[in-house]
């Protein structure tokens, strides 16, 4: 793009950058002004819908409506006839190795390992880094993998897991480290006994920065005087963490944990790039993708998506209890 074109775009750039926030602020200020014209009794009934309204429209149009259509499709054949639970039966019929079961097993691995390791490391790093002066520096180093797209991440970790036959200099980092300990090189992402863990490790490396940044933001929200008071009372640092810091961070830990659980359920890109679901590494989202675009099996894909949605329900119930507890406290 040359300067002339850029200058011709400049008014649009300005309009977009100034206009978009202006429209948003004008919406909320303008509607609030209108609400004030209403009689007192109506205001609390109307106001919430004005504040949640735009969000509801977007979420409904982009996600809830497609979800409803998906639920409908999951009960239909390719020709659009109602077939009851046939699509589910095809996905869940052949326990334990047929249909979607390998993918479900792998999603359970993802759910446990990816969520716990990312959450645990994120918390550990957030708490440790909070205590050093060069916090910003180390945090941005941990954050860096977040800034790599999933496709690049998959390619890069293929480099990490590269394999050369024993006796030949290794080009992959992981096998080279094995070599230092006089172990034979092995294949990582093609061997069903380790490949799920190798892929989850790559994905976890990429997401830990996410957990760290949000948990760190929550940590900063804990009033310093609260911690000081505890220290003055002679509490040890571990006690302070357990009794003061962790309970106050709990709502955020739940948020990050829930998000990670949903990411684990939706895990797709890294698997798609690294193995495409071969070697028993399939996951539900990848299975759905293949059914949708390769097999043209809309019904099957929709059924897999509904299984994913169903898996979120326990997490939602936990969340409901959690925020009711927060409300009860205030």
């Amino acid at each position: 793009m040359d300067w002339g074109t850029f200058l011709s775009q400049l008014p649009i750039v300005v309009i977009v950058i100034v206009g978009v926030p202006a429209v948003l602020v004008a919406y909320i200020v303008g509607t609030e002004y209108l609400v004030r014209l209403l009689p007192d009794a109506f205001r609390p009934r109307v106001r919430p819908w004005i504040w949640v309204g735009p969000a509801l429209i977007f979420v409904f149009g982009f996600l809830i409506l497609p979800a409803i259509l998906t639920a409908k499709t999951s009960l239909e054949s390719g020709a659009g006839d109602f077939v009851g639970l046939q699509n589910y039966q095809r996905q869940l019929g052949d326990f334990p190795t047929g249909g979607a079961w390998i993918a479900i097993r792998n999603n359970v691995y993802w759910l446990i390992l990816y969520t716990l390791v990312a959450l645990g490391f994120g918390l550990l790093l957030a708490v440790l880094f909070d205590r050093v002066r060069y916090e910003t520096f180390v945090k941005s180093l941990i954050f860096m993998p977040m800034a790599i797209s999933a496709v690049a991440l998959g390619v890069i970790w293929k480099f990490m897991y590269w394999y050369q036959p024993p006796g030949v200099p290794q080009t992959g980092t992981v096998n080279a480290i094995l070599g230092i300990f006089h172990q034979d090189p092995r294949i990582w992402v093609q061997d069903p006994s380790v490949d799920n863990f190798a892929i989850i490790a790559a994905a976890t490396w990429g997401i830990t920065g996410f957990a760290m940044v949000i948990l760190s933001a929550a940590l900063k929200g804990i009033p310093a005087d609260l911690l000081e008071a505890a220290r003055v009372d002679g509490a040890g640092e571990i006690t302070i963490f357990r009794r003061v810091i962790f309970p106050l961070m709990m709502p955020t830990v739940v948020v990050v944990g829930t998000t990670l659980v949903i990411f684990a359920l939706k895990a797709f890109d890294v698997v798609y790039v690294m193995t495409g679901g071969n070697f028993e590494t399939d996951v539900l989202a990848n299975r759905m993708y293949k059914l949708l675009f390769f097999s043209g099996n809309q019904g099957g894909a929709a059924a897999v998506a509904m299984i994913l949605l169903a898996a979120v329900v326990p997490v939602l119930i936990f969340n409901l209890r959690q925020f009711r507890a927060v409300e009860a406290r205030r």
């Binding site: 969000a55 979420v59 982009f62 996600l63 809830i64 497609p66 979800a67 259509l69 998906t70 829930t258 998000t259 949903i262 359920l265 939706k266 797709f268 989202a285 759905m288 993708y289 949708l292 675009f293 894909a301 929709a302 998506a305 994913l308 949605l309 898996a311 979120v312 329900v313 939602l316 969340n319």
Partner: peptide, 12 residues
């Protein structure tokens, strides 16, 4: 709203 986070985008 939290639940639909789990919807694979491809379906929409």
């Amino acid at each position: 709203i939290v639940g639909v986070l789990a919807i694979p985008l491809q379906l929409s």
